[in-house]
Design a protein around this nucleic acid. Structure first.
Length: 204
DNA sequence: AACTCGGGGCA
DNA sequence: TGCCCAGAGTT
């Protein structure tokens, strides 16, 4: 697919901003990342992971103290509650390990389809496309999908791309969304794929 | 499909 | 001040 060839050349270092290879740490960081900048998640987790590295560590920490630690990420009450319940399930049902399939991951509170896919692809190397707001918006603009839900966009992208491109396409579309294809004011004049973009066609 | 959960950065 | 941020859960 030509669009992704260009994006790959344009963003040769596109990779996750939540750069954790440890599945458990990536899971926690990704739960925290909901409606929060990756910059702040990295700040909070850099401190958090110094002291708390396993599900047992968080269960010992407790709700109130965890809320304080993650407060600046927003939605801290729900996130703390979800993280602790997730840790309980990990200990009780998965031997303290993070499962690597989407069904088990999505049973964890605080883990939706996007987070589950990110954990699978970034921590376990399983081809998957996490559809966040960037991927959703950019895919629609480019004309890669007309899906009304993230799941439909995910299906369209998977049908469009070879399996070995799934994980990378997630990073490329996010990178592009953050750098050029902004929600409000997309920088179409300096977009490397504007000649292939459906949205650019409608406005020019 | 619409709504709520929210602190913090930035214009 | 107002808008936005690598979403998920509930109704």
């Amino acid at each position: 697919m030509k669009i992704f060839d260009i994006l790959k050349k344009t963003y040769p270092d596109a990779r996750t901003a939540l750069n954790f290879s440890n599945p458990f740490e990536l899971l926690i960081a990704t739960i925290l990342s909901a409606q929060c900048t990756d910059k702040r998640v990295n700040e909070v987790t850099r401190e958090l992971f110094k002291w708390y590295r396993t599900p047992e560590d968080y269960l010992k920490l407790g709700q109130e103290e965890l809320e304080k630690q993650i407060r600046s990420c927003g939605f801290y009450h729900n996130k703390a509650k979800n993280i602790l319940e997730t840790c309980r399930i990990l200990v009780k049902e998965f031997g303290g390990k993070v499962p690597s399939n989407i069904d088990d991951l999505m049973k964890l509170p605080g883990v939706g389809r996007k987070t589950a896919n990110v954990v699978m692809s970034n921590a376990f190397g399983i081809p998957a496309i996490g559809v966040d707001t960037h991927v959703f918006r950019v895919s629609h603009r480019l004309g890669l999908s007309d899906g009304k839900t993230p799941e439909r966009v995910e299906e369209d992208l998977m049908a469009l791309l070879p399996v070995e491109m799934w994980s990378l396409s997630h990073h490329l579309l996010i990178y592009h969304g953050r750098n050029i294809c902004h929600s409000r004011k997309p920088q179409c004049d300096r977009c490397p794929v504007n000649s292939l973009c459906r949205y650019f066609l409608t406005i020019s």
